[in-house]
Simulated assay, not measured.
Amino acid sequence: MTGSAKHALFVHAHPDDESINNAATMAKYVAAGIGVTLITCTAGEMGEVLVPELEHLAHDQDDKLADQRKLELTNAMAEIGVTDHRFLGGFGKYRDSGMQWHEDGHAIAADTIHDNAFWNADLTEAADDLVAVIREVRPQVLVTYDQFGNYGHPDHIQAHRVATYAAALAAVPSYRNDLGEAHDIAKVYWVAMSESWMREGLRAMRAAGDETTFEGMDPEGQLPPFVTSDDNLAAMVDGTEFHEQKMKALAAHATQITTDGPFFALSNNAGSQAWGYEFYRIAKGEKAAPYDDKGLETDLFNGI
């Protein structure tokens, strides 16, 4: 491919993270002929299993969930049209680290994790796995999590660290020439969830009598750390045209997401805008026009 061709690279921790955060954006870019590459850092081996007949795949039983989640990811990407999706370093190199909940309401590392868990990965080695991809596909835009992994999950935090370090290393002309020609990514974004959007969605659900979805979240009270103040947002991609594809991608992750769960409940109450609009913070590069009426970029490629 040529250096002028538009290409976006998304770096996520587990299968399903990409559909929750970016499915509409990815579908929109695919439809526009923009290159999209998804890197998934683990196969989500430690995830819960919501399908009764597949419960035996869980990590505390047969420990065979990885292959199922790989299939679910393939099906989800087929729904939104992404054909270039890969596992960091190859399928199975880095294992899902698992997590537990802190009393303050955010995720932390589990008490016991596997030796090859992503949380234990050597940062330079994992970054080099991504440097090779960056130098191959040569994206202008990279999307990943913030430094807290949005809610504290160790694999999300590690994905942030790996993506950030890899983006820096990939741009150094004298670094690891065996991994390809140096490439500097113009813009780096962190996935985000708008505070005003989340409050509006919660109000709609509570008004409809739904008190169980996102239980404990008060639309007028303090919200969890994955919700971002609107003042910190830089971009909002309008992917409402691809809302149905996003819902199908979410449903494809059947062991992790149920169609009567919070993502679908929010969508049913707040309409296509619930998950069709996807928000971002800018971590590298400059905001650029065109902007929407709230001063947010309408495209992650603005100014490129």
Rank of each mutant, 00 (worst) to 15 (best):
T259G: 10
D155R: 05
H156S: 10
Y145F: 15
E45H: 01
D293I: 09
T255K: 02
I80D: 06
V49T: 10
H85G: 01
L202C: 01
G216P: 00
T2N: 14
D104N: 13
R95I: 13
G276P: 10
T213I: 06
E211T: 15
P52F: 08
D238I: 07
A132H: 08
T25C: 10
N302E: 12
A249R: 01
G209V: 08
K93R: 15
F226S: 02
A170D: 00
P52M: 12
V137G: 00
D96E: 09
Y189P: 00
K70N: 11
F87Y: 15
E72H: 02
M26T: 02
A127H: 03
A283Q: 13
F148A: 14
V143K: 01
P224M: 06
A110M: 05
T42C: 02
A170F: 05
S174E: 14
N232E: 14
V172Q: 15
G216S: 09
T124H: 14
G303L: 07
P262D: 14
N116E: 14
W275D: 05
G81F: 04
A126R: 00
I108Q: 10
F226L: 03
A13L: 09
F263Y: 15
E195N: 08
T298I: 15
A207R: 08
D129K: 06
Y29D: 01
S174Q: 12
A274I: 02
H7E: 11
T42L: 04
E55V: 14
A78T: 13
G209D: 03
H102A: 03
G44I: 10
E181S: 15
E297F: 01
D178C: 11
A274D: 03
D155W: 04
G180I: 08
V188G: 08
M26C: 10
F214T: 02
D63P: 08
D62T: 12
L123W: 04
A121W: 06
F118R: 00
K294M: 11
Q256G: 07
Q256E: 13
T259M: 11
Y145P: 04
K28D: 03
A274T: 08
T255L: 04
D17K: 09
R86N: 04
A31T: 06
L73I: 03
L202G: 01
D122R: 11
Q140E: 03
K248D: 15
A234P: 06
M193T: 15
A265V: 14
A249C: 04
M77W: 11
H253D: 07
L223R: 00
D218A: 04
D230K: 02
L233I: 09
M205P: 05
L296A: 05
K187E: 02
Y145L: 10
G3E: 14
A121N: 01
T83Q: 13
H253I: 10
G33A: 05
P290V: 11
H14M: 05
A166D: 07
T124W: 13
R135L: 02
L266I: 13
A78R: 12
D184K: 15
V172C: 12
R281K: 15
L73H: 11
L9M: 05
D146H: 07
P139T: 00
R95T: 13
V82H: 02
G295Y: 13
V30N: 09
N302R: 01
